[in-house]
Write a protein that binds this DNA or RNA. Sequence first.
DNA 1: GATCCACGGGAATACACGGATG
DNA 2: CATCCGTGTATTCCCGTGGATC
Length: 378
Amino acid sequence: MLPVMDLGERIARRRATTDDRFVTAWSALSPAAHPDDPVGRGAVLERLLDHLGPVFSGHLPDDLHVHGPPGGGKSAVVLALFSELSRQLTGSGTPIQTSTRAASPSAASRVSFVAVDTRQAASPFRLYRATLSALREESVPKRGVSTDVLRTELADELGASRKLVVALDHLDEPRTLSPPEARSLFDAVEGPVATVTIGPERTDAVATVPVPAYRDAALTEVLMARGSRGLRGGLRHEVAERLATWADGDAADALAALYGAAVLAEDAGRRSLTDPDLEQGMAAVPRDGVSVSRVLTLPENRLVTLDALLSETTTRSIDAVAEAVAAKTDLSAGTVTRFLYELAEDGVLERVESEDEPGGPSGVVPRFPTLVYRHLRA
DNA sequence: GATCCACGGGAATACACGGATG
DNA sequence: CATCCGTGTATTCCCGTGGATC
């Protein structure tokens, strides 16, 4: 699935250099993709570096918790930092060029940086496996080995000569671990491990770094940067401002609206974003909804269910969708019904009272950016 | 044989409604 | 009029099974 999308992207990019398409790089606009160098989060970066200071002399930092509202760039800044630290400290020993910090790569090269998306690793087994896979060249078994064995193998991998700082992203979502649960799983590993947990809520259990929502001006800059990489001719400043204001500091929402507007413009063969494009792009992003990236990590059968829901424009009752999906797949209507209730419970869908039949089965509507979802699923 | 977990069915529970009862 | 069933359906929850891997 992923390689195919990647291939499509490459082809699109190649065509864009010969054609003169409006959208030159969908990935630059995607709310589900994080750029290598996050814009406008310099202060947060400094605080993270302050806390992680000990790694520059080969020591482990204390556990850390990074928290803030959705779309504030928590994941983006931590992932970018980890990938750079990993490159510099565990790689070929390139000295660190930071004005305020002295580097000693030889000692620090013993610290490994690993980031795990806990959406894909929501059980202890998966969490240990994902971490171990990142540390080791050879593949780690998916089955046939117990969680305990994996934990001791992880401890064996570490030890006096190797320390680990692990970032745990997307905690405290429906069906992911909580920060305390995640920390205790790594406390149980007999080896030098420090965690950097990422979640929406603050805590006083460990040191914290807050990531506040973007201010309008900063978010405008983010959008301008993305627009200039993704759109022919870039983005007009007033458009970026408008999106930023509308999104109220949530970069995921703003990018989803921009992406949706670009889909409409591109489909209509336009070379720029019109007002209606923007209006509809924003309208397709429910406020306080769920991000596309979260939706896209759901199991395939749930995605098939959502596809069917989106193609049912006339009737959106739970029963109608269940019937439609059951007909197209080998799932039973009862099972699909259960999926729909689950998705509503997790905030991916919103249950609405059906007008014609009060007290009957609920209707259900998406609570995620539908234009972006469709485009990324297609 | 051991292990994890996705899957799916279906049991268990909550709820709404309508009618009966005090 | 208020309250209490009884019934059927909407909704939630649980657990056994089987596939895949080691």
